[in-house]
Structures are given as structure tokens and as C-alpha cells.
Amino acid sequence: MKTSQILICISRVLFPFIVLYGFYITINGHLTPGGGFQGGAILATAVLLSYFIQPEKIRNLNLLIKLEKYMFIVILIVSSISLFTRGEIFTNFLPINSSINLKSLFLTILNLFIGIKVSTGLVLVFSTFIEEGK
């Protein structure tokens, strides 16, 4: 299938802005609407646009599979640190009387990890579909 030249041009212009917007949504999840899942989905659409630019480029799928698995384990570990610091599992690992700015650090870290995990998962889904559809 031949991609139109106009679509490739517009995709090249739009690609960095979409990546920037995805990271903004992900990292600012505790201040503005959005969060890990939404930012990850937007990052996945950016990768989808890059398929229009270079359709023949083969990506290393095994690396993405490993990345997603390890991200899930990291999320589990980060969310269960609080068992040792606070005494209850699956909550913020910082002590309960620390300042509010420090507490939001936990939300930023977890949002970033969830964003990477969701974006790699969605990229894997449609890139396996594209490989199959060739």
C-alpha cells in the first residue's frame, strides 16, 4: 500500500508535538486531567503515526515485550514498598505526615511507569496486527 506524500509530511510535523503532549499528560497527571493510561494511549498514537512515515522499518518487538513485563514488576514493587514504611500495602510509601509536595512524588513516579507500560502494550498490539496484515 502506498502512503500519500501529504500524510507523510503532516505526520513528520505532528510527531514531536504528540510525543510532547503525551509526556505532559503523563507527568502532570496529579495536577491536570489525565494520567498514566491516557498519556500512554497518546504516546502509542504517536508511534502509530511513525508507521506512516517509515512503514518498512522493522522494530524490535522482543525488547518491547521485555520492557512491558519488567514495567509491570516494577509497578508491583513500587506499590508494595509501603508495607515496610507505613505498615499497610498498596498505598503511598512516604510517611503519612510528610509534606504534600513530597507526597505527589509517588504519584508522578507511578504515573510515569504506568504510562510506559500502557504505551508499550498498545504498540505491541497494533504492531503485531500490522505484521500479520502484511
Binding site: H30, P33, G35, I75, S79, T91, F106, L107
Partner: peptide, 29 residues
């Protein structure tokens, strides 16, 4: 410490639920 209440509930009060929601995606993939 979250101004967005949705994220506060999603990642602190109900973190147990959101972890299993993340595992659904990995199973599907």
C-alpha cells in the same frame, strides 16, 4: 497530594484495583 481527585483515588485509595487493571492489558497483549 493530588489536585486531580481522579488520580488521587486511582493511584492511592484504590491502588489495589488499578494494579489488576494494568495486569488485564498484559494478559491481552
Amino acid at each position: 497530594g493530588s489536585k486531580n481527585i481522579v488520580t488521587g483515588i486511582y493511584l492511592d485509595y484504590r491502588l489495589f484495583d488499578s494494579i489488576f487493571e494494568a495486569s488485564i492489558l498484559i494478559i491481552a497483549v
